[in-house]
């Protein structure tokens, strides 16, 4: 596959980079990345991955755009209120870069469909707003042995970690255990969130995907990056694989078949 004149011009500022070049650009154009959640995290992730020339971006969300989304979910405009988030996102991303094929999944991601939806991906980005989905993506990706990154945000702070199952790096369950039911954590709707925080973390998620596809730099593995934009803190917290982890430990279970993911198990029925 040769790059066209238009592609050379479009991607020139990243082809110039030693770490990308024409070889890297062709890898990006041949890659498929799946993105779960087209909210605030997914907005910046999707924009930058489409702009960078990822060949296929599978976008998954069941939700519709609401007025209260617009201060942070920059994929969606005022005219998109009541539209499906997938449709709204595809509209913007197709306009941004026709090189990027947008595959729309207008559905909940659940234990019943997660493996089938994600199995062809080179990298998976979790950008949902709830812990059961984060755990489901963790367990699905470990079962499929596909690398992934998970981020979460609240108020002025957020965190991100990447997991590479084939390298047996620490997974989300190694760190957070089994918090899929009776979740007492607060959501953005209750606690609030400033839009820039998911903007920054969505960019970091896109950056993790790009680095993995191009095999460059260092991933945020075996650590959590924690950011606090109110106090300007960017910290790394070291974490370790738990060999008793039920998802990735020495005696793992295929949790997608067995675990209770709160209300997710009942979706698609």
């Amino acid at each position: 596959m040769d790059l066209t004149e238009e592609q050379i011009n479009r991607y020139s500022r990243q082809i110039v980079l030693k770490e990308v070049g024409g070889i890297g650009q062709k890898k990006l154009l041949a890659s498929k990345i799946s993105l779960i959640g087209l909210g605030a995290l997914g907005s910046s992730t999707a924009y930058y991955l489409a702009a960078a020339g990822v060949g296929t971006l599978q976008i998954i969300d069941f939700d519709t755009v609401e007025m209260s989304n617009l201060h942070r979910q920059i994929l969606h405009f005022t005219k998109d209120i009541n539209s499906k988030k997938t449709t709204s996102a595809a509209d913007k991303l197709n306009s941004l870069n026709p090189d990027c094929t947008i595959e729309i999944i207008n559905d909940h991601i659940t234990p019943k469909n997660s493996k089938a939806l994600l199995k062809d991906s080179d990298f998976i980005i979790e950008g949902s707003d709830n812990l059961p989905t984060k755990m489901l993506i963790n367990d699905t990706c470990i079962s499929l042995k596909i690398p992934f990154t998970i981020a979460g945000v609240l108020r002025f702070h957020g965190q991100i970690m990447t997991v590479v199952p084939e390298k047996m790096t620490s997974c989300y369950r190694c760190v957070f255990g089994d918090i899929t039911e009776g979740d007492s954590s607060m959501s953005c709707s209750q606690a609030g969130v400033i839009g820039f925080v998911p903007g920054v973390l969505g960019c970091l998620e896109a950056n993790e995907a790009l680095k993995y596809i191009l095999n460059i730099g260092d991933l945020i593995t075996n650590k959590i990056m924690y950011i606090d934009l109110l106090r300007n803190n960017f910290d790394f917290i070291e974490v370790h694989r738990n060999n008793k982890c039920i998802a990735c430990g020495d005696d793992p279970k295929d949790l997608v078949e067995e675990a209770n993911y709160g209300g997710l198990n009942a979706c698609n029925e």
Partner: peptide, 10 residues
């Protein structure tokens, strides 16, 4: 520039 270098690099 920088397309001169981009084409040379490719």
């Amino acid at each position: 520039c920088p397309l001169t270098f981009v084409y040379t690099k490719l």
